[in-house]
Protein backbone atom coordinates (compact mmCIF):
# COMPACT_ATOMS: atom_id res chain seq x y z
CA UNK A 1 0.00 0.00 0.00
CA UNK A 2 2.74 2.40 1.07
CA UNK A 3 4.64 1.31 -2.02
CA UNK A 4 1.71 2.26 -4.27
CA UNK A 5 1.24 5.63 -2.57
CA UNK A 6 4.92 6.49 -2.89
CA UNK A 7 4.93 5.33 -6.50
CA UNK A 8 1.93 7.52 -7.29
CA UNK A 9 3.31 10.61 -5.52
CA UNK A 10 6.70 10.50 -7.18
CA UNK A 11 5.26 9.38 -10.49
CA UNK A 12 3.01 12.43 -10.39
CA UNK A 13 6.03 14.65 -9.68
CA UNK A 14 7.82 13.05 -12.64
CA UNK A 15 4.96 13.66 -15.03
CA UNK A 16 4.37 17.18 -13.71
CA UNK A 17 8.05 17.99 -14.18
CA UNK A 18 8.08 16.56 -17.70
CA UNK A 19 5.00 18.55 -18.68
CA UNK A 20 6.46 21.66 -17.07
CA UNK A 21 9.59 21.18 -19.18
CA UNK A 22 7.38 21.42 -22.27
CA UNK A 23 5.32 24.37 -21.06
CA UNK A 24 8.06 26.63 -19.72
CA UNK A 25 9.54 29.05 -22.23
CA UNK A 26 12.71 29.88 -20.38
CA UNK A 27 15.39 27.16 -20.67
CA UNK A 28 16.48 27.49 -17.04
CA UNK A 29 12.98 26.65 -15.82
CA UNK A 30 12.93 23.66 -18.14
CA UNK A 31 16.31 22.56 -16.81
CA UNK A 32 15.14 22.78 -13.20
CA UNK A 33 11.98 20.82 -13.89
CA UNK A 34 14.14 18.17 -15.54
CA UNK A 35 16.21 18.03 -12.33
CA UNK A 36 12.98 17.46 -10.39
CA UNK A 37 12.06 14.65 -12.79
CA UNK A 38 15.46 13.02 -12.29
CA UNK A 39 15.34 13.30 -8.50
CA UNK A 40 11.91 11.71 -8.29
CA UNK A 41 13.01 9.02 -10.74
CA UNK A 42 15.79 8.25 -8.27
CA UNK A 43 13.11 7.64 -5.65
CA UNK A 44 11.30 5.31 -8.05
CA UNK A 45 14.55 3.37 -8.45
CA UNK A 46 14.82 3.14 -4.67
CA UNK A 47 11.27 1.75 -4.58
CA UNK A 48 12.36 -0.90 -7.06
CA UNK A 49 15.34 -1.72 -4.84
CA UNK A 50 17.99 -0.36 -7.19
CA UNK A 51 19.77 1.71 -4.56
CA UNK A 52 23.07 2.08 -6.39
CA UNK A 53 21.37 3.13 -9.61
CA UNK A 54 19.38 5.69 -7.61
CA UNK A 55 22.53 7.17 -6.08
CA UNK A 56 24.30 7.28 -9.44
CA UNK A 57 21.21 8.84 -11.00
CA UNK A 58 21.40 11.72 -8.52
CA UNK A 59 25.18 12.12 -8.64
CA UNK A 60 25.70 11.80 -12.40
CA UNK A 61 22.45 12.98 -13.93
CA UNK A 62 21.19 15.61 -11.51
CA UNK A 63 24.58 16.57 -10.09
CA UNK A 64 26.79 16.62 -13.18
CA UNK A 65 24.95 16.51 -16.51
CA UNK A 66 22.22 18.93 -15.53
CA UNK A 67 24.74 21.25 -13.89
CA UNK A 68 26.47 21.31 -17.27
CA UNK A 69 23.19 22.34 -18.92
CA UNK A 70 22.57 25.08 -16.34
CA UNK A 71 26.16 26.19 -16.79
CA UNK A 72 25.76 26.55 -20.55
CA UNK A 73 22.45 28.38 -20.12
CA UNK A 74 24.19 30.81 -17.78
CA UNK A 75 27.22 31.12 -20.05
CA UNK A 76 25.22 31.92 -23.19
CA UNK A 77 22.72 33.99 -21.20
CA UNK A 78 19.92 32.19 -23.03
CA UNK A 79 16.72 34.18 -22.96
CA UNK A 80 13.08 33.32 -23.50
CA UNK A 81 12.29 31.09 -26.40
CA UNK A 82 10.89 32.82 -29.47
CA UNK A 83 7.33 31.84 -30.33
CA UNK A 84 6.99 30.32 -33.74
CA UNK A 85 3.62 29.57 -35.19
CA UNK A 86 3.16 25.82 -35.43
CA UNK A 87 1.14 24.26 -38.19
CA UNK A 88 -2.58 24.06 -37.48
CA UNK A 89 -2.77 20.43 -38.59
CA UNK A 90 -0.32 19.50 -35.86
CA UNK A 91 -2.46 21.13 -33.18
CA UNK A 92 -5.75 19.79 -34.54
CA UNK A 93 -4.70 16.22 -35.09
CA UNK A 94 -1.38 15.84 -33.29
CA UNK A 95 -2.44 16.45 -29.70
CA UNK A 96 -5.66 14.36 -29.76
CA UNK A 97 -3.85 11.69 -31.73
CA UNK A 98 -1.02 11.57 -29.24
CA UNK A 99 -3.40 11.45 -26.28
CA UNK A 100 -5.43 8.66 -27.89
CA UNK A 101 -2.29 6.72 -28.76
CA UNK A 102 -0.79 6.97 -25.30
CA UNK A 103 -4.11 6.06 -23.64
CA UNK A 104 -4.33 3.03 -25.90
CA UNK A 105 -0.79 1.93 -25.04
CA UNK A 106 -1.42 2.48 -21.33
CA UNK A 107 -4.68 0.53 -21.48
CA UNK A 108 -3.05 -2.38 -23.29
CA UNK A 109 -0.14 -2.40 -20.84
CA UNK A 110 -2.32 -2.31 -17.75
CA UNK A 111 -4.99 -4.80 -18.78
CA UNK A 112 -3.47 -7.19 -21.28
CA UNK A 113 0.22 -7.51 -20.53
CA UNK A 114 -0.35 -10.11 -17.81
CA UNK A 115 2.63 -8.96 -15.77
CA UNK A 116 2.86 -9.76 -12.08
CA UNK A 117 3.22 -7.19 -9.37
CA UNK A 118 6.61 -5.96 -8.29
CA UNK A 119 7.06 -5.71 -4.55
CA UNK A 120 9.00 -2.86 -2.97
CA UNK A 121 12.73 -3.50 -3.13
CA UNK A 122 12.10 -6.54 -5.34
CA UNK A 123 15.62 -6.75 -6.70
CA UNK A 124 18.21 -5.17 -4.45
CA UNK A 125 21.09 -3.88 -6.52
CA UNK A 126 23.94 -3.87 -4.01
CA UNK A 127 27.11 -2.20 -5.30
CA UNK A 128 29.08 -5.44 -4.85
CA UNK A 129 26.89 -7.45 -7.23
CA UNK A 130 26.78 -4.64 -9.76
CA UNK A 131 30.56 -4.32 -9.71
CA UNK A 132 30.88 -8.08 -10.23
CA UNK A 133 28.67 -7.92 -13.30
CA UNK A 134 30.22 -4.74 -14.63
CA UNK A 135 33.83 -5.85 -14.32
CA UNK A 136 33.39 -9.53 -15.21
CA UNK A 137 30.47 -10.17 -17.53
CA UNK A 138 30.32 -6.73 -19.11
CA UNK A 139 34.02 -5.91 -19.13
CA UNK A 140 34.31 -5.38 -22.87
CA UNK A 141 31.34 -2.97 -23.14
CA UNK A 142 32.70 -1.17 -20.10
CA UNK A 143 36.09 -0.65 -21.74
CA UNK A 144 34.46 0.42 -25.00
CA UNK A 145 32.42 3.08 -23.18
CA UNK A 146 35.63 4.42 -21.66
CA UNK A 147 36.95 4.92 -25.22
CA UNK A 148 33.65 6.59 -26.09
CA UNK A 149 34.01 9.00 -23.18
CA UNK A 150 37.59 9.77 -24.19
CA UNK A 151 36.48 10.58 -27.73
CA UNK A 152 33.65 12.73 -26.37
CA UNK A 153 36.07 14.69 -24.17
CA UNK A 154 38.39 15.34 -27.10
CA UNK A 155 35.48 16.30 -29.32
CA UNK A 156 34.13 18.71 -26.72
CA UNK A 157 37.54 20.36 -26.31
CA UNK A 158 38.03 20.75 -30.07
CA UNK A 159 34.50 22.07 -30.62
CA UNK A 160 34.40 24.50 -27.74
CA UNK A 161 37.92 25.90 -28.17
CA UNK A 162 37.98 29.27 -29.90
CA UNK A 163 39.39 29.05 -33.46
CA UNK A 164 41.84 31.84 -32.68
CA UNK A 165 43.35 29.96 -29.76
CA UNK A 166 43.95 26.88 -31.93
CA UNK A 167 45.65 29.06 -34.58
CA UNK A 168 47.77 30.64 -31.89
CA UNK A 169 48.85 27.26 -30.56
CA UNK A 170 49.79 26.14 -34.10
CA UNK A 171 51.92 29.23 -34.59
CA UNK A 172 53.65 28.71 -31.28
CA UNK A 173 54.45 25.24 -32.48
Amino acid sequence: MLHLVLFLIFGAICVAGAVNLLVQRHPINSALSLVAVMASLAVEYLLLGAEFVAAVQVIVYAGAIMVLFVFVIMLLNAGEEARTGGSRVAILFGIPGMLAGSLLVAWVLITHSGTQEVSAGALPGPPREIANLLFHDFLLPFEVTSVLVLIAIMGAVVLAARPESIEQQKREG
Binding site: V72, L123, T145, V149, I153, A156
Partner: peptide, 24 residues
Protein backbone atom coordinates in the same frame (compact mmCIF):
# COMPACT_ATOMS: atom_id res chain seq x y z
CA UNK B 1 20.54 -2.17 -14.01
CA UNK B 2 23.92 -2.45 -15.75
CA UNK B 3 22.29 -1.16 -18.92
CA UNK B 4 21.27 1.98 -17.07
CA UNK B 5 24.92 2.76 -16.41
CA UNK B 6 25.76 2.43 -20.07
CA UNK B 7 22.86 4.70 -20.96
CA UNK B 8 24.15 7.23 -18.44
CA UNK B 9 27.66 7.12 -19.94
CA UNK B 10 26.25 7.70 -23.40
CA UNK B 11 24.06 10.52 -22.06
CA UNK B 12 27.07 12.18 -20.42
CA UNK B 13 29.15 11.90 -23.59
CA UNK B 14 26.27 13.21 -25.65
CA UNK B 15 25.74 16.15 -23.29
CA UNK B 16 29.42 17.08 -23.41
CA UNK B 17 29.67 17.01 -27.20
CA UNK B 18 26.21 18.46 -27.73
CA UNK B 19 26.77 21.41 -25.44
CA UNK B 20 30.13 22.06 -27.10
CA UNK B 21 28.33 22.13 -30.46
CA UNK B 22 25.74 24.53 -29.00
CA UNK B 23 28.50 26.85 -27.82
CA UNK B 24 30.19 26.70 -31.24
Amino acid sequence: QIFVFFVMVVAAAEAAVGLAIIIA
